[in-house]
Amino acid sequence: MAQHGHHVASSQKALMLEMKSLQEEPVEGFKITLVDESDMYNWEVAIFGPPSTHYEGGYFKARIKFPVDYPYSPPAFRFLTKMWHPNIYENGDVCISILHPPVDDPQSGELPSERWNPTQNVRTILLSVISLLNEPNTFSPANVDASVMYRKWRDSKGKDREYIEIIRKQVLSTKADAERDGVKVPTTLDEYCVRTQVPPTDDGSNLLYDDYYDDEVLDEDEEEDSDNGCYNEDDSGTEDS
């Protein structure tokens, strides 16, 4: 049992550090809280749909559940909001290679390098989930119907609108959730990129952000802002896989 206790101590410490880092430098479009203050192993995630994508205006809730031997084993990521997507199961579980343990499984078509390893963290998971929403992987879908429908939309260059219309309906249905939770969903790139979750600190460390995310700056170079790590529509979903 001593081994188990050691895992708990080290994984709790790792999770506390990650939570702190994500509060100081949030990932754009995400809000993260603990489901219960006394439990480091269950996180609640709110995801805002990135502007200029089909998810714009959406407010999606999810949970991340961490194993006791994190970061040696991957967490599970599950949407609580209903999602229609090739890589999300009916029950909301996200199927994404970065969350699979690194066993050598030639059947899966995944390289061990695409799978979980202890250098991955919540930040890399969140970024993977966002890119997965915009660029589904149809290789081994978790939701076959959604995958077929997505491929029809993609291959018809958007003429077959069934997939997109379902997503827009789901986005609209999240408005009620946002209102109930008292959340204002960002709908412009400016709002989406502002790191609103950071309480101002007195040590001057956030001055850089204030300057960087000055409204004027963003309005001028909305096109050039791909280097600030914020979502940029140009590089998603255009290439055929």
Rank of each mutant, 00 (worst) to 15 (best):
W116N: 03
F66P: 05
N232V: 02
P186D: 10
I64N: 01
A14K: 07
T188D: 12
Y55P: 08
Y209M: 15
Y70E: 06
Y192H: 06
D145Q: 14
P75L: 11
P26S: 08
S10K: 15
L80P: 00
P86D: 01
F77P: 00
C95N: 04
L17V: 11
I47Q: 03
P186F: 00
E220G: 03
T81W: 04
S38N: 14
N232D: 12
N137P: 09
K157R: 12
K175I: 00
F139I: 12
Y150S: 09
E44T: 06
E162T: 04
G229Y: 02
Q3H: 09
N143G: 07
I125N: 04
L189W: 00
T81S: 10
G109Y: 14
E191Q: 13
F30A: 07
S21H: 07
S173L: 11
M149F: 00
L126H: 11
T238N: 09
Y212F: 15
E114A: 06
Y213P: 03
P118D: 02
D36I: 05
Q12D: 11
Y55T: 02
K159H: 07
S156G: 02
L189S: 02
T138F: 07
L17M: 13
W116S: 08
S226W: 13
W116P: 03
G5M: 12
G229P: 05
S147K: 06
R168C: 05
L172H: 07
T201L: 11
D104F: 09
Y41I: 08
P141L: 05
L15F: 12
V8A: 07
E223I: 08
D203F: 10
Y213M: 13
L99R: 03
A76G: 03
D160V: 01
E56Q: 10
K31T: 10
P118K: 02
S140P: 01
P67A: 02
P112G: 00
T238Q: 10
W84T: 03
V144C: 01
G182A: 02
D69L: 07
W43V: 04
V35C: 11
Y209K: 14
S128G: 03
N87L: 13
D202E: 06
K20V: 00
T138R: 08
N91I: 10
H4G: 03
D234E: 12
H7C: 11
P101C: 07
Y209I: 11
L127Q: 08
E37Y: 09
R154L: 15
L133P: 14
R168G: 00
L132V: 15
G29P: 07
D227P: 14
W84D: 12
K13M: 08
Y209A: 15
Y212C: 14
S21T: 04
E37W: 07
D105I: 14
I166V: 10
D203W: 03
P118V: 14
N91H: 11
D225N: 13
L126G: 11
D105E: 15
I96R: 05
I96H: 02
L80M: 14
R161M: 13
Q107V: 15
L17H: 15
Q12E: 15
I167S: 05
A9F: 13
S147Q: 05
G158H: 09
A142F: 14
D227L: 14
L133R: 05
P71I: 05
D234S: 09
K65Y: 09
E239C: 02
N87M: 11
P118I: 11
N232S: 12
Q3C: 02
D235W: 11
Y150A: 09
H6C: 08
T196K: 06
V148Y: 07
I130F: 01
D69N: 12
